[in-house]
Amino acid sequence: MTATAGWTPDQPIVSLKDVHKSFGELEVLKGVSFDVMKGEVICIIGPSGSGKSTLIRCINALNNIQKGSIKVEGQEVHDPKLDKLELRKKVGMVFQQYNLFPHKTALENVMMAPVLVLKQDKADVEERARKLMAKVRLQGKEDNYPGELSGGQQQRVAIARSLAMNPDVMLFDEVTAALDPETVKEVLVTIKELAQEGMTCILVTHEMGFAREIADHIYFTDRGVIVEHGPPATFFTEAKDPRTKKFLEQIL
């Protein structure tokens, strides 16, 4: 990956400062700031509609912002001169609804971006894609179409598809929310392995037990602001803000 001029790995890999985002009249993010260091895993939790998805979508420029700054490896994401492709190479994203390409097999889904976007050699990509399929424990499912896979399997293909681009940061937006309880675990195991290998991860999740287990830092958002944050050890036991307490009481 090409290093961005001026950025060194001891600086935050993702840095948000006073981010504001509105959809028309509706202000969804009202000044969000946080830093993520390389290799860190952070979890964002909060009630529905508090702007978690919007926040994560702003980080890879699927949404624009009105004010503030988002930097990935020192590069301003919302700089109009930014080459979006450079950003997309660094940041991988996994969606709640998997969003696989239904007309391509699992393996083709994983191979498509490196071949088309990065113009890598097809045979090399295939070899890597097969390894990634094994990594997400989907050996033997390479030639199945998304419609022939379970939700949990599709989501793991989606993770492999993102990893095929060799990103530096992975964004996960409630990736287990559409799954039934038995399959949630298989996806969480995959994410956990990634985190343990040192992948920088930003997760939106409702799985509190999981957040507690893998997060280095937890952020609680409500109505477009970060209400409270801290490492899991203290966050769950020593929440001070009444909104956080209420949320945790409901969910735990």
């Binding site: 890879n60 492709l85 997309r88 991988g92 994203m93 990065l118 989606a158 681009m165």
Partner: peptide, 16 residues
């Protein structure tokens, strides 16, 4: 739209 967004977030150009 979400399928289109998935392509976009993988770096596909508009034409791709």
């Amino acid at each position: 739209d979400s399928t289109r967004e998935a392509a976009e977030s993988l770096g596909f150009s508009r034409l791709q």
